[in-house]
Computed example of a mutant assay.
Amino acid sequence: MSAAERLPESIVCTAIEWQMRLRGNAGSAELQRQLQAWLAQDELHQMAWQRLQQMAGLFQVKQLPAAGHAIPLLQRAEADLTRRRMLKLLGIGLTAGSATLLATAAPQAWRADFATATGESRRVSLDDGSQVLLNTGSALDMQGQALLLRAGEVLVEGAQWQVHCRFAECRGQQARVVLRERDGYSEIRVERGDVLVSTPAGQRWLQAGDGLGVSATAMTVLGKGPLDPFAWARGLLLVNDIRLADFLAEAGRYRQGWLGCDKAVADLRLSGVFRLDQPELMLRNISHLLPVAVVEHTRWWVRVVPVA
């Protein structure tokens, strides 16, 4: 293996850390910008990120656990690649000690009762008749008769149900609601029915059409935004006058790798209906709707730039 192909452990550790941070903060535009800056610093950063995504593809999993947990998980799944080949893919020769160095807590999606990988959705029918639909990259636990949203986004509907999210407890009555964990707050959107939102600071009733953002310190009424919060349950991404940078951050939740844009086109506005099961077609359509070009540096690193 040449020096150009060999990756320092410190860079691989950082790439894995980025993977974990993105998984815990899906949809964070600021985090995506920080990742882009790190990738642009050094070609070795790009190589480490690409190989991390390649590892997930080779093992036919949509999300890659931390290196220290990947080996036993894949062995139990009877993956046909050996530990040596897996580490060779990363371009480093790990000892037992360095494998321990890379190990971190297993991501929530691998420990939850119900979970989805990137680009996947999953429907769960509960004993009480309630229905739950998990969106991409989400994790949900059962806690007695209640649900605990650990990460991502879910749609819940039924006669009566109870969901705990990061900053609030929600009780629905004949309600259909989307709950999403965002960077620093929990978002609650009601399509029908009544929902009681409880926090240590107080309670609030929500009705059809209401939206609420709940953080550690406040409850904020959310107006209608550029993104339809219920369209994903129909397999669609429906946007109205959304910034291109924000659209790409949302679309990036449904595909592997990094998706971003040049600052020169970040504030362009976009409206339309896009199919979530066709992410590559979604990207091609952008170039027909806006004066931009989609540049694929690799399959896992896509950048939208101004038309030359």
Rank of each mutant, 00 (worst) to 15 (best):
15 A>M: 10
17 E>P: 01
18 W>K: 02
18 W>N: 05
18 W>M: 01
20 M>L: 14
21 R>S: 12
23 R>C: 03
24 G>Y: 08
24 G>P: 05
24 G>T: 12
26 A>M: 02
27 G>S: 14
27 G>F: 08
29 A>M: 02
30 E>K: 05
30 E>Q: 10
31 L>E: 09
31 L>D: 05
31 L>H: 03
31 L>N: 06
32 Q>H: 12
32 Q>C: 07
35 L>A: 03
35 L>F: 04
37 A>L: 03
38 W>D: 06
38 W>K: 13
39 L>C: 08
40 A>S: 11
41 Q>S: 10
41 Q>D: 10
42 D>F: 13
42 D>N: 15
43 E>F: 09
44 L>H: 03
46 Q>D: 04
46 Q>V: 15
46 Q>G: 07
47 M>G: 12
50 Q>C: 08
50 Q>T: 13
52 L>T: 05
54 Q>H: 08
54 Q>I: 12
55 M>A: 11
56 A>R: 06
57 G>P: 14
58 L>W: 15
61 V>K: 00
61 V>F: 03
64 L>G: 13
69 H>E: 12
69 H>F: 01
72 P>M: 03
74 L>Q: 10
75 Q>S: 01
76 R>C: 00
76 R>I: 01
76 R>H: 07
76 R>S: 00
76 R>Q: 07
78 E>N: 08
78 E>S: 10
78 E>K: 14
79 A>H: 05
80 D>S: 13
83 R>W: 01
83 R>L: 02
83 R>T: 00
84 R>I: 06
84 R>E: 07
85 R>F: 02
85 R>C: 00
87 L>Y: 05
88 K>Y: 01
89 L>D: 04
92 I>C: 05
